[in-house]
Structure formats: structure tokens, C-alpha cells
């Protein structure tokens, strides 16, 4: 077997003229991505050290670290960092934890399982603005929302969720979008588990709990790493849901880093300040992703 693979690997490497034409075919994609990833990055960095306001042309010139200084000393910024952390960690916990359990649940045989699975993964395919408005209006609206009606039906006073618990509510909406993603990935991974391995564990007398922790969970570790990595990237930049539901408010109660940068740049036209925020977002994303990418990269079949 291994002889065969090494032979075919050799063959892959060996095609005539591989070097030149391979590079030629790779070049356009690499060039485009290089421009896309480097130019904006450099510009963000550049702007972040400039006094630059779109509506105040008198303000210009080198700003040093002032933009960073103002940002870091701004309580709104700290609040937005906190909100970003709540959003990312909260949704990760819900989606990975719940996703693992649901993956195991929908791996079981039951009547209509196929349909149930399709229903569960559906929210992932709903565009963020629709999800947000769906929840804000149809579900959670304090007067017309279904949840409010249900609360009244059992004698409770309906809560204006987005006013009272804005961050928590946004987090739940986002979790509703991303839990299905985790289920989709983890269910696929669970199903790739070797049936014989499960049967062997069964013959060894392992109960359902032991099987879950000793067979299923280790098998899922790679898929879970992938889910965490991908969700982290998206969750750091949650924007549409906040814009549509709370517009970052009340006050800055539900403003995350992405929304703060947006409001600095496109509502206050402070290019310098927004860019400093952007640089910080990139740094955070890189710190968060660095070890995740490395963990996942080991698993990728290249």
C-alpha cells in the first residue's frame, strides 16, 4: 500500500514541464489574493497613523499613535471588546456544545430523521439580515412576536428582549444561525465514524456515555477544531445582525468591535480612528486564529 502511494506521489511530482506551467497557472490566483490581502492591510495600517476625517479636510497629517491612544482610552472601545468576546465565546460554546449533542442525536435512527436533519441545518442558509429581522419582529417583538404571545399565554409579562438584554439577545440570534453549521459539520464527521469501531466498543461492554467520550468525541476533535476556527473568523466580524436589530444600542450595549469600526468610519467619518480599530481587529483575529489554523493545518490533507 505504502509503496503504491509513494509511487503515485512521485508520479504527481514528475509530470513534464511541471514547474513552469504550474507556476503560470497558479500565478493569477496568487497575484489576485496577494493584492487583496496586502494592499488593504497596508492602507489600514497607514491610515491608522493619520489624522484623516472625510468631512473635515482641515484635519490631516501624521497622527502618531494618537488614534490608538484615543481608541484605547475610550470606554466605548472597551465595551465593544467585551461585547465581541461575549459574542464569540457565547456562540462558540452554544454551537459546539449543542452541535456535538445534536450531531449524536441525529446520528440515531428514528422516523423522519432525514427531514428533521434538514430542518435543523436550515437556519445556516438564511441570510443574516433575514435571520435578524425574523427574530426581532416575528419572534421577539414585544407586542406581535410569537414568544411574547406565548409569555402572555402563560401569564407572564412580555419582555422587550432587544432593549432589556441586547447583547444576550443578539448572541442568541447569532447562535441560532451558527448552531446548524456546527451540526452540519459534526454530523458529517460522526457519520464517517467506522461502524466496526462502534461495534467493537459495544462488544467491549462500553455504555453510551463511555462510547461518547472514548470513541465519538476523540473522532470529532478535528471537526470541532475546524468548526471553532471557521466560526471564530465569522463571529469576530458579526455586523449585519447588530445593525439590523439594535444598531449597537441602547447606547453601546450591543456594539461589538465590527460595529464600532463601522460607526467610526461610515457614521462619524473618522478614517484614522476606524483604521486603528481595524488594525486592532486584525491583531485579535490573528492571535485567535494563529493557534487554531495551526491546529487545523496539521489535519489538512495537502
Amino acid at each position: 500500500m505504502s509503496a503504491v502511494t509513494t509511487a503515485s506521489q512521485h508520479h504527481r511530482k514528475a509530470a513534464i514541464g511541471a514547474g513552469a506551467s504550474g507556476a503560470l497557472m497558479l500565478a493569477p490566483a496568487v497575484f489576485v489574493l496577494l493584492v487583496w490581502s496586502v494592499v488593504p492591510l497596508v492602507l489600514t495600517l497607514w491610515y491608522s497613523f493619520q489624522n484623516y476625517n472625510l468631512v473635515d479636510p482641515t484635519l490631516h497629517g501624521f497622527a502618531g499613535v494618537n488614534n490608538y491612544w484615543y481608541l484605547l482610552s475610550d470606554p466605548d472601545f472597551l465595551q465593544s471588546l467585551l461585547n465581541t468576546a461575549i459574542l464569540v465565546i457565547g456562540v462558540l460554546v452554544i454551537s459546539v456544545g449543542g452541535g456535538t449533542l445534536l450531531a449524536v442525536l441525529y446520528d440515531q435512527e428514528f422516523v423522519g430523521r432525514g427531514v428533521a436533519r434538514v430542518l435543523v441545518i436550515s437556519p445556516f442558509f438564511v441570510m443574516p439580515t433575514v435571520s435578524a429581522l425574523l427574530w426581532k419582529n416575528l419572534m421577539l417583538h414585544p407586542i406581535y412576536g410569537v414568544y411574547s404571545w406565548m409569555m402572555r399565554a402563560v401569564g407572564l409579562t412580555p419582555i422587550d428582549w432587544l432593549q432589556r438584554f441586547p447583547m444576550l439577545t443578539v448572541m442568541m440570534i447569532v447562535a441560532w444561525e451558527w448552531l446548524p453549521f456546527a451540526v452540519l459539520i459534526l454530523l458529517t464527521a460522526v457519520q464517517s465514524l467506522d461502524a466496526e469501531q462502534k461495534e467493537a466498543a459495544l462488544l467491549d461492554g462500553a455504555g453510551p456515555v463511555a462510547r461518547f467520550f472514548h470513541i465519538v468525541l476523540p473522532h470529532l476533535s478535528r471537526a470541532i477544531a475546524v468548526v471553532i476556527m471557521i466560526e471564530t473568523i465569522y463571529l469576530l466580524t458579526i455586523f449585519a445582525e447588530i445593525m439590523v436589530t439594535t444598531a449597537g444600542g441602547p447606547g453601546v450595549a450591543s456594539t461589538n468591535l465590527a460595529y464600532l469600526i463601522y460607526s467610526r468610519a461610515l457614521l462619524q467619518f473618522d478614517v484614522g480612528g476606524a483604521s486603528a480599530g481595524g488594525v486592532i481587529a486584525i491583531v485579535i483575529a490573528n492571535i485567535a486564529a494563529a493557534f487554531l489554523v495551526r491546529a487545523v493545518a496539521r489535519h489538512l490533507e495537502v
Binding site: A3, T6, A7, H10, H11, A15
Partner: peptide, 18 residues
């Protein structure tokens, strides 16, 4: 035996290998 280079030699004759 496998790994003796027989296939590689054939593929060189074929022009699939430099």
C-alpha cells in the same frame, strides 16, 4: 519487486516522466 523502478522506467519511456 515493488519500488524497484520498473514502472518509473516505463513511464520515462512513455514520456510521462522526465
Amino acid at each position: 519487486p515493488s519500488g524497484c523502478g520498473k514502472s518509473t522506467l516505463l513511464r520515462m519511456i512513455a514520456g510521462l516522466e522526465d
